[in-house]
Design a protein around this nucleic acid. Structure first.
Lengths: 143, 143
DNA sequence: TATTATTGCATAGCTTGCTATTCAAGTGTA
DNA sequence: TACACTTGAATAGCAAGCTATGCAATAATA
């Protein structure tokens, strides 16, 4: 049998993801945040004062992964946690001032990385590429 | 400003890569190998008896990442290392019988994961998707 | 030839992801 | 009400990625 990595979707996807992550890392390092915190911040910038469970419903990572990321974010002064009056097992997660202030710069960094990475594609190709990715993602998730 | 993760290429790429990796992991676990070893095995199935440097030239990961992966592969009985007569700093890396025997099953697993993941796309769409990924990868790498 | 620079790898230490397990708090039921 | 079940989160332990640094062997040069 024959197998060429350049013809393997999985190989390309993995490679591309590492390149994207490395790029974003470089762009956001000056803000004092790291890539794994990005998805969490995106949700909290939309709405904070939520539980870990709420976040988990919006981010497709395992619960343990999120718990660890939140611990590092607390350590780094990006979030604070308060008691949840409704349920003593859960806590409410809040952005600190510091983290709230980073929003626009972070958005901008991500946009820059995205548009730089996709600059080899024409505008319609970009749209198609995004569409393909969304379809592949939901295809795998629903299989 | 506004930012929607579903419209962020980086977000989608990362998500897709984790889904692919998880799928492949499940498929190859019965073979006794794990995803990080896959790129190394692909190269060694083509040609073994090479140095770490040779491998590094063919796989786009950092040298330290490769060194650690090779250590785990040796621990797991997938590779053996012998002295390099030409240079005492380097060693030659060889597949074990066990690892050599896995080739066809591993190829098949990867093919299955790929085709299952891309089954939501038509044949021409798949080709286009692969083309986009290759272009994006080389675009980022050469920037 | 002795010293300096380069090269091939290894190691330390971190993040981000995973699975599996544990634990305390809340819920439901005999 | 007591017991069992469920649920929210934490923890342990591993893989795979990264950067930074160290070290011994080789190569280059004063």
């Amino acid at each position: 049998m024959d197998f060429k990595k350049e013809n393997s979707a999985g190989y390309l996807v993995n490679h591309m993801a590492r390149l994207f992550a490395k790029e974003l890392q470089h762009h956001i390092a000056p803000l004092g945040i790291v890539v794994g915190q990005f998805p969490v911040l995106l949700e909290l910038w939309l709405k904070d004062g939520v539980t870990q469970k709420d976040l988990l419903a919006r981010i497709d990572v395992e619960q343990a992964t999120l718990a660890n990321t939140l611990n590092r974010m607390e350590r780094d002064g990006l979030i604070k946690r308060t008691k949840n009056p409704a349920d003593a097992r859960a806590q409410l997660i809040w952005l600190t001032e510091k983290a709230a202030a980073l929003r626009n710069s972070a958005y901008e960094s991500a946009q820059n990385v995205n548009s730089q990475a996709l600059q080899v594609l024409t505008e319609p190709e970009r749209a198609q590429f995004m569409d393909y990715m969304r379809r592949v993602i939901s295809g795998i998730r629903s299989s």
